[in-house]
Write a protein that binds this DNA or RNA. Structure first.
Lengths: 134, 134
DNA sequence: GTTATTGCAAACAATTTGCACCCAC
DNA sequence: GTGGGTGCAAATTGTTTGCAATAAC
C-alpha cells in the first residue's frame, strides 16, 4: 500500500485549472458542467477529487446558507458578505486576516492550509422590505 | 399582512436557551433531540426557527466539511480549526477578528450581524498516518 | 374570524458509496 | 495481474416544503 502521492493527477489538475481560469467560485455541479467539454468526468469523480485538492491545500470551500458548497483556488484569498435573508453575496475587497497575525500556537499541531471568513448581515433591499411591511 | 416582529416567540426562545445553556454548538438534529424533554417541537419547526434566529442575528451557524450545519449563539464568539482529513475540530482561544477593525465601508449597506471564521489544516494524527504510509 | 405557527410526511438536492470495469505499470 | 482511479446508479443525509390541523390574537 502506498501513501498519498505528493503530486496531483490529471483530473485534479483539470479541476484546479478550471477553478483558476473561471475567475470565481463554483459548486461541484457547476464544475462538472463546466468541464463537460475540455475534460469530462463523472460527478462522483469531481467530488472525490475536490476533496483531495482540499486536503492538499489547493482548494478551499465555503458554504452558502443554502448548504451548497462553493470551491475556489486557495490563492484567491477572497471572502464574502452574505445576506442571511435573501442569500445575496458580495465579495470583500481584501482579506482582513492577512493584516493580522494569528499567534502560531493557536494552531497547535495542525498544519494550517487555509481559512474561510464570512460576514453575514441584512442587505439594504431586505431591510427595506422588512420595515416597509411593518 | 404584518411585518417581521421585533421579538422572538416562545419556540425561538427555547431554541436560543438550549443553545446558550448547552455550552457548545449543536446541529439542527441535535437541538431537536435536546429539546425533546423541555420543549418538544417538530424537526421542521426547529429548522424554521433557527433560520429566523439567524436572520435576527441571535444565532450563527457554521458548516462542517460533512455539510452539516452547527448552530451557536452569536455571543459565543468562538471559531475553529478543522482537519480537512478526519474532520476533527478544535476551538480557537480567541477571535482574531475582534482585534482588528474591518473598515466599515467594506460592508456598504449591509447591516452586519455576525461573522464566521474557520481555519483548516491537517491534524497531527492525519499527518503522521499519511507519512507513515508512504 | 383571521393570521401565524406547527407537525407530519413527502419531497428535495447535494453529495457519497458500492461495485464492476478499465488502464497503467 | 495488481492497484488506483473511474463511471454509473443507487443510497444516504441534512434540510425544506405542502398542507391540513391548531393555536394566537
Amino acid at each position: 500500500m502506498r501513501g498519498a502521492p505528493l503530486t496531483i493527477n490529471s483530473r485534479q489538475q483539470a479541476l484546479l485549472e478550471s477553478l483558476r481560469s473561471s475567475g470565481g467560485e463554483m459548486s461541484g455541479q457547476q464544475l462538472h458542467r463546466h468541464l463537460e467539454k475540455q475534460s469530462p468526468m463523472g460527478l462522483a469523480t469531481v467530488y472525490r477529487n475536490l476533496r483531495v485538492l482540499q486536503q492538499r491545500g489547493f482548494v478551499r470551500c465555503r458554504h452558502l446558507p443554502s448548504g451548497e458548497a462553493l470551491y475556489a483556488p486557495v490563492e484567491r484569498d477572497q471572502h464574502h458578505l452574505t445576506c442571511v435573508d435573501c442569500g445575496k453575496t458580495q465579495p470583500l475587497e481584501h482579506c482582513p486576516i492577512h493584516a493580522i497575525d494569528v499567534p502560531q500556537k493557536s494552531f497547535g499541531d495542525f498544519d494550517l492550509l487555509f481559512h474561510t471568513l464570512e460576514f453575514f448581515g441584512i442587505c439594504t433591499d431586505c431591510r427595506n422590505r422588512q420595515t416597509s411591511l411593518i
